[in-house]
Nucleic acid binder design. Structure first.
Lengths: 153, 153
DNA sequence: ACCTTACTGCGAACAACTTGCGTCTGAGGA
DNA sequence: TCCTCAGACGCAAGTTGTTCGCAGTAAGGT
């Protein structure tokens, strides 16, 4: 065991989850490389769990300076195609990525750009309605609702 | 009065609405030019009322070949900042624009990319919930819901 | 240890806008 | 009607965020 540098109280949780995710990737025919490990770790330890590709690259490059931005993009794509991470694309600027640990949606503030998670259960009624009226199957993820957050009102 | 070319049964409605919109623009300090008139007309007559900037440019350029794409973008921006048109940005590809004639939202199919309008009233309950739980004021427009449409399921 | 072949770094390509610049023009006023 | 001048235009060049082609590297099954 032992030492990654800078251990924190919850590093065990992070490490366990990290390995769980990486095995899922490996079991699906993917390979686990230093870069990929670092990208997943960055996603796990990101403050608000919603980060851009460049955020991830910046974090990763603190420890591994030659992991290229395009590797981050390719890793995110590999994880997305396996349903491990999700992408939120609020029109302006870069897309934001997050682990799909639980079904949730996003309230995106038009003013400050902050992203708030909303549990999927708030949407069950709406989902049923869209299904009934339009035969449309709402994705359980990826939904971004624009508006104005409490702070910016 | 009289003749634009190629008159159709509902051209009067279109023309009336066109002038209404252009006056709103003019009353707000904007200027009405040939290009802007053509852009608004393209929005009014678009088949599904949800068009990309390039769609608009293509339509406009049939009659006015030297209206530049950048003029279309600038006109759309002018109209958006005045709340006359709205923009839907489904992650992939170009943004789609539409007149804000009534409050509605969008069901965007992940597979075929089709956009279905949903009246805002389906969202009143959800809006109240977001307000109550997070103090978040959902925009009455611009909401795009990802998923799979009836045809693609 | 060996052999596939997925993954990588790098730079160049790409799509969708956005902007700087010099010219032109709509529309309120003299 | 004519002036004038900020707002709008055409054009080309620039930005931004993301993807791709290539040749080299290294996972991981055998």
């Amino acid at each position: 065991m032992a030492g990654q540098h800078h251990r924190h109280p919850h590093d065990h949780d992070v490490d366990a989850e990290l390995e769980r995710i990486l095995s899922a990737l490996r079991d699906d025919g993917g390979r686990v490389t230093t870069g990929r490990r670092a990208v997943v770790r960055a996603l796990l330890t990101a403050d608000d769990h919603h980060v851009t590709a460049e955020d991830i690259a910046a974090t990763v490059q603190r420890d591994h300076p030659d992991v290229h931005l395009s590797t981050v993009y390719r890793t995110l794509e590999a994880l997305e195609s396996r349903g491990i991470v999700g992408r939120v694309n609020l029109g302006t600027g870069s897309a934001v990525h997050h682990l799909m640990d639980h079904a949730h949606h996003h309230l995106v503030c038009d003013v400050c750009g902050s992203v708030t998670e909303v549990d999927d259960d708030a949407f069950t009624e709406l989902r049923a309605e869209m299904e009934r009226r339009y035969g449309f199957a709402m994705s359980p993820q990826h939904l971004a609702v624009a508006g104005r957050c409490a702070d910016c009102r």
